[in-house]
């Protein structure tokens, strides 16, 4: 129950932060960072996959309501949620995820998390910018957007995750 509440708060805060703050970041017109995908990244590893998928769709749809682009973010986050199990397997390698419930930096380490975040952000941005242009006419621009936005998103997401983990440690000590 407590966990559900935490997830709801995370959901609302991340969507609002995305549409009210991050969407207004303008660096030359090509850089578009997206941080709301943190929600999907931090969902419990043991959560049924179909639930992650549904939550991904709902999350994307909520962002779409604000940006006025029905189906755009929903499509991208759904694909990202679909890829999450494979990405988890890919970045973990031999490392066991058995006693990990919620992916966190403290338990899994910075490098693991960086790989995890980078893979998922790449999937998400790739889908997002392709769906957005809705054609292959502007391929060059789409790739430029992906190449420039992914590092910024990853950087912002890692910063946010580190800030939150620091907060947790202080509380527990």
């Amino acid at each position: 129950m407590n966990k559900t509440l935490l997830n709801i708060i995370r959901f609302v805060v991340l969507v609002l932060a995305q549409v009210l703050l991050v969407n207004h970041i303008r660096l030359g017109g090509y850089v578009h960072p997206y941080i709301y995908v943190i929600f999907i990244m931090l969902l419990s590893v043991t959560m049924p996959k179909w639930q992650v998928l549904t939550l991904g769709f709902v999350l994307g749809f909520c962002v779409d309501m604000f940006t006025g682009t029905p189906g755009l973010h929903a499509g991208a986050t759904t694909l990202m949620a679909f890829c999450r199990p494979s990405v988890l397997r890919l970045v973990s390698g031999h490392q066991k995820l058995e006693n990990v419930h919620e992916p966190n930096i403290g338990q899994l380490g910075g490098p693991w998390f960086l790989r995890y975040v980078a893979c998922l952000v790449l999937v998400h941005h790739f889908a997002l910018f392709f769906l957005e242009s809705f054609s292959f006419r502007l391929l060059g621009q789409v790739f430029l957007r992906i190449v420039l936005s992914v590092p910024v998103s990853v950087f912002l997401i890692m910063m946010i995750l580190y800030l939150f983990d620091l907060g947790k440690k202080k509380e527990s000590h």
Partner: peptide, 21 residues
Amino acid sequence: HFVILFILLEVISILLLARSQ
């Protein structure tokens, strides 16, 4: 069910997107 749900949600997204174009 996982793959079917994924395809279903993606189709919904793309239909919404196509309509919004």
